[in-house]
Design a binder for these strands. Structure first.
Lengths: 149, 149
DNA sequence: GATGAAAGAGATTGTTC
DNA sequence: GAACAATCTCTTTCATC
């Protein structure tokens, strides 16, 4: 898959605003809308583009606390069953199987510290195989972006 | 800001695919396109919607390694200057000021382990105030989603 | 809040170069 | 790859309910 300068402009515009009309990009680039359209279809068929998403502001829903939690498992064989349970907790928005101290590393969103405590002590600690957790609360996020094209 | 069932349908459809036409949502819900359009404008004006983004698949660009890095600072007064330097590293896609052991906690994307090593040992370790780092490499990501509406 | 209508803008496709 | 043109669909606004 070769990506030229025009493709990069298309991608950068749509990463910024996924609802940007193809014709508006066409006018910026200086080629026809049909040509931009054709390129976009090609980019979508390649695996480069994963989709288009509306971004929700969690704060507007009252989710003011972001935290990362390192989860220790008694045995790594309990990974898949633990993940299954974590998927049922809507506040868990990312999960990783990681090298290092933890077995599972998750990102969670909570409305307040009480909810966070409940989530940690009840929802997560009660998952079979989870021995203990280690929590990092994000007090300030300064960088949040996608990889540069 | 009150969100009713129709708003939820609008949001859920656009979270899935931000380029879904308003009229397509209108047909699903059973009200006019103009009404959906009006609701969407209102949702956009509230701070609930943060925007619309094309999602890039980093793997398609060769970024196969995701890692989290805890960064220790000599002094927390070096936070803002360190962030400034981290912003210049395109592989750093998230940064958090966190409670717990680390001062800064970042998410990075790398093409391979060599790049990761270079990033840690050169780019990050050379930032003034950084004493040491602790790295967790993600071997498997099972959950990646937004908060449920 | 919702509607329908209307005008303008955009998407999409086939043909041609 | 891109352009052009035709057609269809969507967006946006406005008067009305």
């Amino acid at each position: 898959m070769k990506i030229d300068g025009i493709d990069k402009i298309i991608i950068r515009r749509l990463v910024k605003d996924a609802r940007t009309p193809v014709l508006s990009i066409a006018r910026e680039v200086g080629i026809s809308g049909a040509a931009i359209h054709q390129r976009l279809r090609k980019l979508e068929k390649s695996k480069l583009i994963d989709g288009y998403k509306m971004v929700i502001n969690p704060k507007a829903l009252g989710y003011t606390t972001t935290a990362y939690v390192g989860v220790f498992l008694d045995s790594s064989s309990q990974y898949s069953s633990a993940i299954k349970r974590l998927k049922e907790i809507p506040e868990v928005i990312e999960s990783h199987y990681t090298t290092g101290n933890y077995a599972i590393f998750i990102k969670i969103l909570c409305k307040n510290n009480e909810d966070l405590m409940y989530l940690l002590n009840k929802d997560i600690q009660n998952i079979k195989g989870v021995s203990r957790t280690e929590t990092f609360i994000s007090l300030d996020q300064q960088i949040d972006r996608q990889i540069t094209i």
